[in-house]
Amino acid sequence: MNSLKQITDGLFANNPVLVQLIGMCPTLATTTSLKNALGMGLSAAAVLVCSNVVISILRKIIPVKVRIACYIVIIAGFVTVVDLLMQAYLPELSVSLGMYIPLIVVNCIILARAEAFASKNGVIASFFDGVGMGLGFTFALCLLAFFRELIGCGTVYGIPVFGSGYEPVTVIVQTPGGFLCLGILIAAFKVVSDKIKGRKRS
């Protein structure tokens, strides 16, 4: 599998959120604004790339019976590093993401890629797998956040776009609205990707 294929795989064909349906908790929680979604997506991607590389390096010496414990320590370590760096250098983002950053530890995308990919493949392949899945996660989050912020707050990346006459549909930025938007987005993504697949076949 070449690296480009791996990246597009993570972005589209095997998008972690829209196709694999994993990492739903951070997806619903942080997509209330585009800024948060981008921050969450990129921090999770950074942790994913780092943990994939390290787990891949250590894959031959980690004993099978304690592998999950080892993965969690590695992932939690990187998450704490990202959390501290963010607090020190991106304080605003850290305020708005706050409690979700420590939750990257239990983000199933990261553990899933560690278990399903990094523990069985080489360092370079694992690196690109991390990049692809991380970007796929970020892409899905941003797409969802774009619509939720637009409808729910009338803004795009914090900038009002509809003028003062627009009454925001606040339910969209609440949890039920998150489920609604995610459902519609997954359906739309499926329709589009089926069309593309159909075209390729014929």
């Binding site: 209330t32 604004s33 305020v95 708005s96 707050c153 606040t170 930025v173």
Partner: peptide
Amino acid sequence: TQINETAGL
């Protein structure tokens, strides 16, 4: 100086 409440509410 520090708030983490639901966006928009």
